[in-house]
Amino acid sequence: MGTSLTPEFWERFAILLVAAMGVTIVLTAALDALAVRLLSRRAGRTPSPTRPRPTTTDHRTIVHS
């Protein structure tokens, strides 16, 4: 027994498809905003970079003759 897809099926399918896309877009935007907020908050807490100690190649030794 074959069944045909009725216009009512396609109408409900389209409504559910649009609803699913809307939920996906809203959730993605909300999670993206949350991730950006957490990353910016974490970036603000990083300590300021300290100046590295000079090594022997960073300065010249004065040689008296």
Rank of each mutant, 00 (worst) to 15 (best):
M1R: 12
M1G: 15
M1C: 12
M1K: 11
G2M: 08
G2V: 14
T3H: 11
S4D: 12
S4G: 10
T6W: 01
T6C: 01
T6A: 01
T6I: 01
P7F: 02
P7A: 05
P7M: 04
P7R: 08
E8Q: 12
E8T: 04
F9K: 01
F9G: 00
W10I: 10
W10V: 08
W10M: 11
W10L: 15
E11Q: 11
E11R: 10
F13Y: 15
A14Q: 05
A14E: 06
A14R: 11
I15C: 08
L16V: 11
L16R: 15
L17E: 14
L17G: 10
V18P: 00
V18D: 05
V18A: 14
V18W: 05
V18H: 07
V18C: 03
V18K: 11
A19S: 12
A20S: 09
A20K: 05
A20I: 03
M21I: 13
M21E: 07
G22I: 02
G22K: 01
V23D: 02
T24G: 09
T24D: 07
T24K: 04
I25H: 04
I25R: 06
V26N: 02
V26L: 08
V26H: 01
L27C: 10
T28Y: 11
T28P: 00
T28E: 05
T28S: 10
A29C: 03
A29L: 12
A29D: 02
A30K: 04
A30Y: 05
L31F: 13
L31R: 09
L31T: 08
D32S: 15
D32E: 10
A33M: 06
L34D: 07
A35Y: 08
A35S: 06
V36P: 00
R37I: 03
R37Y: 12
R37C: 07
L38A: 13
L39S: 09
S40L: 10
S40V: 05
S40A: 07
S40P: 00
R42T: 07
R42K: 13
A43V: 03
A43R: 02
A43Q: 04
G44E: 06
G44S: 09
G44C: 01
R45I: 02
T46W: 12
T46C: 09
P47W: 00
S48N: 07
S48Y: 06
P49N: 02
P49L: 03
T50S: 13
R51Y: 04
R51D: 04
R51M: 12
P52H: 00
P52N: 00
R53K: 12
R53P: 03
R53S: 09
R53L: 13
T56N: 11
T57V: 10
D58L: 00
D58R: 00
D58H: 01
D58E: 00
H59R: 14
H59D: 05
H59P: 01
H59N: 05
H59K: 11
R60I: 14
T61R: 14
T61I: 13
I62G: 08
I62W: 13
V63N: 06
V63K: 03
V63M: 05
V63S: 06
S65E: 11
S65Q: 10
S65K: 09
